[in-house]
Design a protein around this nucleic acid. Structure first.
Lengths: 350, 350
DNA sequence: CCTTGGGTTTGGAACGATCCAAATTTACCT
DNA sequence: AGGTAAATTTGGATCGTTCCAAACCCAAGG
């Protein structure tokens, strides 16, 4: 009874139509649950769909309808748990909405970022969520993505002539306020010689966190020593390597606001190597609240940014943008929360 | 000079053809770098492509050519650094090869896994890399992905009737041997009362690791106490909660082989709470070598699995499969390497 | 018996690319 | 100039779906 499904080739809507003797158009209506089609034909068609194991070809449909059902997610560092959580959040929402996530990881390389964006654009995503690589150029990115596809910039500002991109939506953490909170917390603990440790000036988040630190220091009437503002690659390894820079002079800082948790954990190791015990001889704070922060020795005072929730938020923002393509661009700054743990002790010996 | 690019609509190959007075076919040849087209026409067309800001529509091309340029990557837990690194590795290779990664994260839910697979299949991926959720059913997965699309199973076996899926490629860690190495190491340190801590029996990797543990214990003539084989959800939180189970009897173990690093780190916390110092009063080993393992207190002895390299390998395996669709299915077991750190001390007091 | 009209169904032209066989131009040789 | 081979270009069909206007069916009403 009935034809057999085609071999080797995928089952198409025409196969179904032929299989139960109706037109392609009718099958298409059934697939989309149109109320136009008669109950009995619908049943017959649905049976045939099952029988032949039909799978919908969304690419073909998208082509005809001039629509898209994918969102590109381009991240500067997927391996970083912060972004991995973020990606999980994005995918969670997109999956629920019938969109599919096109992933691109740039490993912090701007050339690769452009290549990835170019490649993803060829798949015609409905929108783009981009956490840019450091040192990227706004105009180049704009050239890669065009003006038709809405883009949500996450986490970092991008370099170059930004005015050309003022129609992009933005989702940023309140870096400045977060760093200010951390600094104020250390000041309240009694510290006066406080460093800002780690990060690259190339990234906007680092500049913003430094600004928050400076703000708090000045508000408290404390002097900001430029030799206590140390740059390093924001990972554990370089953070260990550069840590000695804090102790070159006779008067060393007693505390440090660190660019992020990875840097803070690296600094802890560096302190140990100098015979200092973090959380007793030296106070420090991080940023991100990665899983490790709660269980390091000592547990790390840091700023919670709930990356998974940020991912969900980013997905929702881009979906909203698809609803209203011409609404004015939106910049969202999400607050961060100070989590006090044992690493931010009072100064050891006065 | 020349027409203006169309507004609102995307510029197509026909626009270019019209813009420089050649046929669509010629433009198509230029795009694909065919040697057939004359130098001068090529230059003219390329200029026009630039001028109008053309972007290739790969979906349309794929439709016509009956090909695909995407690979689906479905992971049970993207937020886990192990899988995040893996995903980064996959994307690294795929990106270089002109494929795009369709991401799907299932959060360890089998219903969601089926939904995600179904949704991704509609986009017609050339292949699938799947790290299945716990407790999934082979036949259901097979029904979702069909027999046309090659699938690479990563990290875990899947439940149910596997015989139906023996054409799937597989990439697994050598869990059994890894756990055996860890256990032998602890035995060599002088331990005789060794527990196997954490993981779910529902997952094949846990069963394999337990098997390796049992193997080593029996080979050394040591008894395996079933009350020292404790299950827990493989995350830090539950690992802390369940840790007391190791100490219910008068004779407690002096060491534990842990299901993975997260569990081991949780157990460390649990030990602290009992007043035991891991790496001095109690020895333990992990599995995975997550970033944290090297810097925990004490640093964790564990099995390195280099997830990023696994990701690259998975991508390469699936690409090979696309080259030779009918080659016989391949099962790859990758060796793991024991990294000895301070957590695996000798027994404290005999 | 013919009309009217709601409920269903349908052919054929899109969408944006590629393939293929055939047409056109150019180049070269007697 | 004429003829042939090589180089280049091209129309039209096609991939799997959706849209649209038109066609079909059947019962009720005049």
């Amino acid at each position: 009874m009935g034809n057999t499904p085609p071999v080797g080739r995928k089952v198409t809507l025409s196969d179904i139509a032929a299989g139960c003797d109706v037109s392609r158009a009718t099958v298409s209506l059934v697939l989309r649950g149109s109320p136009l089609v008669n109950k009995h034909t619908r049943a017959r068609v649905e049976e045939e769909l099952r029988r032949q194991g039909y799978v919908y070809n969304r690419a073909a449909a998208n082509l005809r309808r001039r629509t898209s059902s994918s969102i590109a997610l381009v991240l500067n560092d997927l391996a970083n748990p912060f972004f991995a959580e973020f990606a999980a959040g994005v995918d969670e929402i997109l999956g629920n909405t019938g969109f599919v996530t096109l992933l691109g990881s740039t490993s912090e390389s701007t050339e690769r970022e452009l290549a990835v964006l170019g490649s993803l654009m060829e798949h015609g995503p409905a929108g783009i969520i981009l956490s840019p690589a450091e040192g990227g150029d706004a105009e180049q990115i704009l050239a890669a993505v065009g003006t038709q596809t809405p883009l949500l910039l996450f986490n970092r500002e991008v370099g170059g002539d930004i005015t050309a991109c003022d129609h992009w939506d933005r989702l940023f953490l309140d870096n400045q306020h977060g760093a200010r909170l951390a600094t104020e917390h250390l000041i309240a603990k009694g510290h006066r010689r406080i460093a800002f440790y780690g990060g690259h000036l190339g990234s906007s988040s680092c500049r913003q966190r430094r600004a928050g630190y400076v703000e708090a220091m000045q508000a408290a009437g404390l002097t900001v020593e430029t030799r206590w503002m140390v740059e390093c690659i924001p990972n554990r390894l370089d953070a260990v390597a550069q840590s000695e820079q804090l102790f070159t002079e006779t008067t060393a800082p007693t505390a440090a606001v660190c660019y992020n948790d990875a840097v803070a954990l690296g600094l802890m190791l560096g302190l140990h190597q100098r015979g200092l015990q973090p959380g007793r001889d030296f106070a420090l704070t991080g940023f991100d609240d990665i899983a490790e922060a709660a269980v390091s020795a000592p547990p790390l005072t840091t700023l919670a940014v709930t990356p998974r929730a940020r991912g969900r938020q980013a997905a929702e923002l881009i979906l909203q943008r698809l609803q209203e393509p011409s609404a004015s661009p939106r910049q969202t700054i999400v607050p961060v929360q100070l989590l006090v743990r044992a690493s931010s002790c009072a100064p050891h010996a006065a």
